[in-house]
Nucleic acid binder design. Structure first.
Lengths: 138, 138
DNA sequence: CTTTACTATGACGCGAACGTCAAAGGTCCC
DNA sequence: GGGACCTTTGACGTTCGCGTCATAGTAAAG
Protein backbone atom coordinates (compact mmCIF):
# COMPACT_ATOMS: atom_id res chain seq x y z
CA UNK A 1 0.00 0.00 0.00
CA UNK A 2 1.02 3.51 -0.74
CA UNK A 3 0.59 5.59 2.39
CA UNK A 4 0.80 9.33 2.23
CA UNK A 5 0.74 11.96 4.93
CA UNK A 6 -1.67 14.82 5.21
CA UNK A 7 0.44 17.35 3.37
CA UNK A 8 0.55 15.26 0.23
CA UNK A 9 -3.14 14.43 0.51
CA UNK A 10 -3.80 18.14 0.71
CA UNK A 11 -1.74 18.85 -2.36
CA UNK A 12 -3.43 16.12 -4.37
CA UNK A 13 -6.95 17.12 -3.49
CA UNK A 14 -6.46 20.84 -3.33
CA UNK A 15 -8.03 20.92 0.11
CA UNK A 16 -6.17 22.48 2.98
CA UNK A 17 -4.81 20.35 5.77
CA UNK A 18 -7.01 22.14 8.25
CA UNK A 19 -10.11 21.39 6.20
CA UNK A 20 -9.18 17.72 5.92
CA UNK A 21 -8.82 17.42 9.67
CA UNK A 22 -12.05 19.30 10.08
CA UNK A 23 -13.91 16.92 7.77
CA UNK A 24 -12.61 14.06 9.84
CA UNK A 25 -13.61 15.82 13.03
CA UNK A 26 -17.23 16.18 11.98
CA UNK A 27 -17.38 12.66 10.63
CA UNK A 28 -17.56 13.52 6.95
CA UNK A 29 -14.72 11.19 6.08
CA UNK A 30 -13.41 8.08 7.79
CA UNK A 31 -10.55 8.59 10.16
CA UNK A 32 -7.53 7.31 8.26
CA UNK A 33 -4.95 4.94 9.67
CA UNK A 34 -2.31 6.29 11.98
CA UNK A 35 1.36 5.64 12.38
CA UNK A 36 2.71 4.54 15.76
CA UNK A 37 3.31 8.15 16.50
CA UNK A 38 -0.26 9.18 15.72
CA UNK A 39 0.48 10.59 12.29
CA UNK A 40 -2.41 10.29 9.84
CA UNK A 41 -1.70 8.01 6.88
CA UNK A 42 -3.97 8.11 3.83
CA UNK A 43 -4.52 5.50 1.13
CA UNK A 44 -5.59 6.12 -2.46
CA UNK A 45 -9.10 5.21 -1.44
CA UNK A 46 -9.07 7.82 1.30
CA UNK A 47 -7.98 10.44 -1.19
CA UNK A 48 -10.72 9.44 -3.61
CA UNK A 49 -13.34 9.74 -0.93
CA UNK A 50 -12.04 13.14 0.01
CA UNK A 51 -12.36 14.35 -3.55
CA UNK A 52 -15.85 13.03 -3.91
CA UNK A 53 -17.01 14.61 -0.70
CA UNK A 54 -15.67 17.98 -1.67
CA UNK A 55 -17.13 17.73 -5.15
CA UNK A 56 -20.52 16.96 -3.73
CA UNK A 57 -20.29 19.82 -1.30
CA UNK A 58 -19.23 22.38 -3.88
CA UNK A 59 -21.46 21.24 -6.66
CA UNK A 60 -24.62 20.41 -4.82
CA UNK A 61 -24.44 23.15 -2.29
CA UNK A 62 -25.21 20.63 0.37
CA UNK A 63 -24.23 21.57 3.82
CA UNK A 64 -21.65 19.28 5.31
CA UNK A 65 -24.29 17.92 7.66
CA UNK A 66 -26.66 16.93 4.86
CA UNK A 67 -23.79 15.35 3.04
CA UNK A 68 -22.74 13.35 6.07
CA UNK A 69 -26.26 12.12 6.47
CA UNK A 70 -26.39 10.95 2.89
CA UNK A 71 -23.04 9.19 3.10
CA UNK A 72 -23.95 7.30 6.25
CA UNK A 73 -27.18 6.14 4.66
CA UNK A 74 -25.37 4.99 1.59
CA UNK A 75 -22.84 3.01 3.56
CA UNK A 76 -25.43 1.30 5.65
CA UNK A 77 -27.48 0.37 2.62
CA UNK A 78 -24.49 -1.10 0.85
CA UNK A 79 -23.42 -2.97 3.95
CA UNK A 80 -26.91 -4.31 4.32
CA UNK A 81 -26.80 -5.67 0.82
CA UNK A 82 -23.49 -7.43 1.28
CA UNK A 83 -24.24 -9.09 4.54
CA UNK A 84 -27.70 -10.01 3.58
CA UNK A 85 -28.29 -12.99 5.76
CA UNK A 86 -26.19 -11.92 8.67
CA UNK A 87 -27.72 -10.58 11.83
CA UNK A 88 -25.19 -7.91 12.64
CA UNK A 89 -25.97 -4.73 14.46
CA UNK A 90 -25.50 -2.79 11.26
CA UNK A 91 -28.52 -4.44 9.68
CA UNK A 92 -31.26 -2.02 8.87
CA UNK A 93 -34.80 -2.61 10.00
CA UNK A 94 -37.49 -2.90 7.38
CA UNK A 95 -39.32 0.12 8.70
CA UNK A 96 -36.15 2.14 8.64
CA UNK A 97 -35.48 1.08 5.07
CA UNK A 98 -38.84 2.45 4.07
CA UNK A 99 -38.05 5.75 5.69
CA UNK A 100 -34.74 5.86 3.91
CA UNK A 101 -36.40 5.17 0.59
CA UNK A 102 -38.79 8.04 1.14
CA UNK A 103 -35.96 10.37 2.12
CA UNK A 104 -33.86 9.46 -0.89
CA UNK A 105 -36.72 9.98 -3.28
CA UNK A 106 -37.33 13.36 -1.74
CA UNK A 107 -33.68 14.21 -2.32
CA UNK A 108 -33.88 13.14 -5.92
CA UNK A 109 -36.90 15.35 -6.45
CA UNK A 110 -35.12 18.33 -4.98
CA UNK A 111 -32.07 17.63 -7.08
CA UNK A 112 -34.26 17.54 -10.15
CA UNK A 113 -35.73 20.92 -9.27
CA UNK A 114 -32.32 22.34 -8.66
CA UNK A 115 -31.12 21.22 -12.04
CA UNK A 116 -34.09 22.79 -13.74
CA UNK A 117 -33.51 26.07 -12.02
CA UNK A 118 -29.87 25.87 -12.98
CA UNK A 119 -30.84 25.40 -16.58
CA UNK A 120 -32.98 28.49 -16.62
CA UNK A 121 -30.22 30.43 -14.96
CA UNK A 122 -27.84 29.14 -17.60
CA UNK A 123 -30.19 30.44 -20.28
CA UNK A 124 -30.16 33.81 -18.63
CA UNK A 125 -26.40 33.76 -18.57
CA UNK A 126 -26.23 32.86 -22.24
CA UNK A 127 -28.61 35.68 -23.08
CA UNK A 128 -26.48 38.13 -21.21
CA UNK A 129 -23.34 36.90 -22.90
CA UNK A 130 -25.01 37.35 -26.27
CA UNK A 131 -25.99 40.89 -25.42
CA UNK A 132 -22.50 41.75 -24.28
CA UNK A 133 -21.04 40.20 -27.41
CA UNK A 134 -23.41 42.13 -29.65
CA UNK A 135 -22.38 45.30 -27.89
CA UNK A 136 -18.77 44.45 -28.57
CA UNK A 137 -19.18 43.65 -32.25
CA UNK A 138 -20.25 47.06 -33.50
CA UNK B 1 -50.87 48.92 -7.32
CA UNK B 2 -50.98 46.27 -4.69
CA UNK B 3 -48.63 47.20 -1.89
CA UNK B 4 -47.76 44.70 0.79
CA UNK B 5 -45.74 45.01 3.96
CA UNK B 6 -42.75 42.98 4.89
CA UNK B 7 -44.62 40.33 6.82
CA UNK B 8 -46.69 39.34 3.83
CA UNK B 9 -43.70 39.47 1.52
CA UNK B 10 -41.95 37.12 3.91
CA UNK B 11 -44.88 34.73 3.91
CA UNK B 12 -45.12 34.72 0.13
CA UNK B 13 -41.45 34.14 -0.49
CA UNK B 14 -40.71 31.94 2.49
CA UNK B 15 -37.84 34.19 3.47
CA UNK B 16 -37.68 35.63 6.93
CA UNK B 17 -38.22 39.32 7.48
CA UNK B 18 -34.73 39.64 8.87
CA UNK B 19 -33.22 38.08 5.78
CA UNK B 20 -35.20 40.37 3.49
CA UNK B 21 -33.94 43.42 5.35
CA UNK B 22 -30.46 41.96 5.26
CA UNK B 23 -30.60 41.48 1.50
CA UNK B 24 -31.62 45.09 1.15
CA UNK B 25 -28.86 46.16 3.49
CA UNK B 26 -26.13 44.52 1.40
CA UNK B 27 -27.63 45.76 -1.85
CA UNK B 28 -28.86 42.44 -3.16
CA UNK B 29 -32.34 43.79 -3.81
CA UNK B 30 -33.60 47.27 -4.52
CA UNK B 31 -34.85 49.20 -1.53
CA UNK B 32 -38.63 49.12 -1.85
CA UNK B 33 -40.90 52.11 -1.53
CA UNK B 34 -41.75 53.39 1.91
CA UNK B 35 -44.87 54.71 3.50
CA UNK B 36 -44.90 58.16 5.07
CA UNK B 37 -44.03 56.49 8.31
CA UNK B 38 -40.99 54.69 6.86
CA UNK B 39 -42.69 51.34 6.53
CA UNK B 40 -41.40 49.22 3.62
CA UNK B 41 -43.97 48.61 0.88
CA UNK B 42 -43.37 45.90 -1.69
CA UNK B 43 -44.87 45.49 -5.17
CA UNK B 44 -45.38 42.26 -7.06
CA UNK B 45 -42.21 43.02 -8.97
CA UNK B 46 -40.25 43.37 -5.77
CA UNK B 47 -41.51 40.01 -4.60
CA UNK B 48 -40.56 38.41 -7.89
CA UNK B 49 -37.07 39.79 -7.66
CA UNK B 50 -36.74 38.49 -4.14
CA UNK B 51 -37.73 35.02 -5.24
CA UNK B 52 -35.31 35.02 -8.11
CA UNK B 53 -32.45 36.16 -5.95
CA UNK B 54 -33.08 33.49 -3.38
CA UNK B 55 -33.50 30.83 -6.05
CA UNK B 56 -30.20 31.76 -7.56
CA UNK B 57 -28.50 31.71 -4.21
CA UNK B 58 -29.86 28.34 -3.16
CA UNK B 59 -29.57 26.64 -6.48
CA UNK B 60 -26.25 27.94 -7.63
CA UNK B 61 -24.55 28.01 -4.31
CA UNK B 62 -23.37 31.50 -5.04
CA UNK B 63 -22.41 33.61 -2.13
CA UNK B 64 -24.51 36.71 -1.79
CA UNK B 65 -21.56 38.79 -2.86
CA UNK B 66 -21.03 36.89 -6.09
CA UNK B 67 -24.72 37.14 -6.76
CA UNK B 68 -24.75 40.86 -6.18
CA UNK B 69 -21.84 41.24 -8.52
CA UNK B 70 -23.66 39.35 -11.23
CA UNK B 71 -26.86 41.32 -10.78
CA UNK B 72 -25.11 44.65 -10.96
CA UNK B 73 -23.34 43.62 -14.14
CA UNK B 74 -26.59 42.50 -15.65
CA UNK B 75 -28.32 45.75 -14.86
CA UNK B 76 -25.54 47.82 -16.25
CA UNK B 77 -25.41 45.82 -19.44
CA UNK B 78 -29.13 46.13 -19.97
CA UNK B 79 -29.05 49.82 -19.22
CA UNK B 80 -26.21 50.24 -21.65
CA UNK B 81 -28.25 48.59 -24.35
CA UNK B 82 -31.26 50.80 -23.81
CA UNK B 83 -29.45 54.06 -23.75
CA UNK B 84 -27.25 53.14 -26.57
CA UNK B 85 -26.29 56.52 -27.90
CA UNK B 86 -26.43 58.40 -24.66
CA UNK B 87 -23.32 59.44 -22.82
CA UNK B 88 -24.48 58.88 -19.28
CA UNK B 89 -22.27 57.93 -16.39
CA UNK B 90 -23.73 54.46 -16.42
CA UNK B 91 -22.22 53.76 -19.82
CA UNK B 92 -19.72 50.97 -19.78
CA UNK B 93 -16.30 51.40 -21.29
CA UNK B 94 -15.30 49.12 -24.13
CA UNK B 95 -12.44 47.67 -22.16
CA UNK B 96 -14.70 46.98 -19.23
CA UNK B 97 -17.21 45.29 -21.49
CA UNK B 98 -14.53 42.92 -22.65
CA UNK B 99 -13.66 42.05 -19.10
CA UNK B 100 -17.29 41.44 -18.33
CA UNK B 101 -17.62 39.16 -21.33
CA UNK B 102 -14.66 37.12 -20.17
CA UNK B 103 -16.06 36.87 -16.65
CA UNK B 104 -19.47 35.80 -17.83
CA UNK B 105 -18.09 33.13 -20.08
CA UNK B 106 -16.05 31.81 -17.21
CA UNK B 107 -19.20 31.63 -15.13
CA UNK B 108 -21.01 29.75 -17.84
CA UNK B 109 -18.21 27.23 -18.03
CA UNK B 110 -18.29 26.64 -14.31
CA UNK B 111 -22.04 26.32 -14.40
CA UNK B 112 -21.72 23.70 -17.10
CA UNK B 113 -19.26 21.73 -15.01
CA UNK B 114 -21.51 21.97 -12.01
CA UNK B 115 -24.43 20.61 -13.94
CA UNK B 116 -22.42 17.68 -15.17
CA UNK B 117 -21.30 16.79 -11.69
CA UNK B 118 -24.87 17.11 -10.51
CA UNK B 119 -25.96 14.67 -13.15
CA UNK B 120 -23.49 12.06 -12.03
CA UNK B 121 -24.56 12.58 -8.46
CA UNK B 122 -28.14 12.14 -9.54
CA UNK B 123 -27.18 8.83 -11.12
CA UNK B 124 -25.64 7.76 -7.87
CA UNK B 125 -28.79 8.71 -6.06
CA UNK B 126 -30.94 6.76 -8.49
CA UNK B 127 -28.70 3.72 -8.06
CA UNK B 128 -29.04 3.92 -4.34
CA UNK B 129 -32.80 4.23 -4.57
CA UNK B 130 -32.90 1.16 -6.77
CA UNK B 131 -30.90 -0.79 -4.27
CA UNK B 132 -33.12 0.22 -1.41
CA UNK B 133 -36.20 -0.64 -3.42
CA UNK B 134 -34.84 -4.04 -4.31
CA UNK B 135 -34.16 -4.67 -0.66
CA UNK B 136 -37.74 -3.74 0.12
CA UNK B 137 -39.36 -5.93 -2.52
CA UNK B 138 -38.32 -9.33 -1.21
C1' DC C 1 21.79 11.77 18.24
C1' DT C 2 20.86 16.06 16.66
C1' DT C 3 18.81 18.88 13.37
C1' DT C 4 15.25 20.15 10.19
C1' DA C 5 10.84 19.73 8.60
C1' DC C 6 6.37 17.85 9.22
C1' DT C 7 2.40 16.66 12.23
C1' DA C 8 -1.22 16.63 16.16
C1' DT C 9 -4.11 18.85 19.29
C1' DG C 10 -6.18 22.77 21.37
C1' DA C 11 -7.71 27.14 21.39
C1' DC C 12 -8.86 31.40 19.69
C1' DG C 13 -10.24 34.29 15.59
C1' DC C 14 -13.04 35.52 11.70
C1' DG C 15 -16.43 36.62 7.92
C1' DA C 16 -20.87 35.32 6.16
C1' DA C 17 -25.68 35.08 6.91
C1' DC C 18 -28.71 35.63 9.44
C1' DG C 19 -31.45 35.17 14.71
C1' DT C 20 -32.95 37.68 18.52
C1' DC C 21 -33.98 41.24 21.61
C1' DA C 22 -34.88 46.10 22.97
C1' DA C 23 -36.61 50.60 22.29
C1' DA C 24 -39.25 53.60 19.64
C1' DG C 25 -42.42 54.56 16.38
C1' DG C 26 -46.30 53.42 12.70
C1' DT C 27 -51.21 51.27 11.33
C1' DC C 28 -55.48 49.94 11.71
C1' DC C 29 -59.83 48.92 13.70
C1' DC C 30 -63.61 49.92 16.69
C1' DG D 1 -58.21 58.35 19.89
C1' DG D 2 -56.65 54.42 22.32
C1' DG D 3 -55.23 49.77 22.23
C1' DA D 4 -53.40 45.70 19.82
C1' DC D 5 -50.32 44.56 16.68
C1' DC D 6 -47.20 45.46 13.28
C1' DT D 7 -42.52 47.79 11.66
C1' DT D 8 -37.80 50.01 12.03
C1' DT D 9 -33.24 50.58 13.51
C1' DG D 10 -29.47 49.22 16.25
C1' DA D 11 -26.88 46.15 18.52
C1' DC D 12 -25.39 41.97 20.14
C1' DG D 13 -25.53 36.72 19.69
C1' DT D 14 -24.96 32.47 17.00
C1' DT D 15 -23.58 28.79 13.76
C1' DC D 16 -20.75 27.15 10.03
C1' DG D 17 -16.43 26.40 7.88
C1' DC D 18 -12.55 26.84 8.22
C1' DG D 19 -7.64 30.13 9.18
C1' DT D 20 -4.14 30.86 12.35
C1' DC D 21 -1.26 30.60 16.13
C1' DA D 22 1.02 28.04 20.01
C1' DT D 23 2.87 24.04 21.99
C1' DA D 24 4.49 19.59 21.87
C1' DG D 25 5.45 15.37 19.64
C1' DT D 26 7.20 12.66 15.19
C1' DA D 27 9.94 11.32 10.89
C1' DA D 28 13.76 11.13 8.20
C1' DA D 29 18.31 12.56 6.91
C1' DG D 30 23.02 13.15 8.00
Amino acid sequence: MNWIKIDEAAKITGITKRAIRYYEEIGLIHPPERSDGQVRLYTDEDVKQLKRVVDAKEVLGFSLQELQHFLSIKERVLEHKDQYESTKDTTIQQSELEEIAVGLKEQEKMLQQKMEKMKSFQEELKDLIQKVDSLLNV
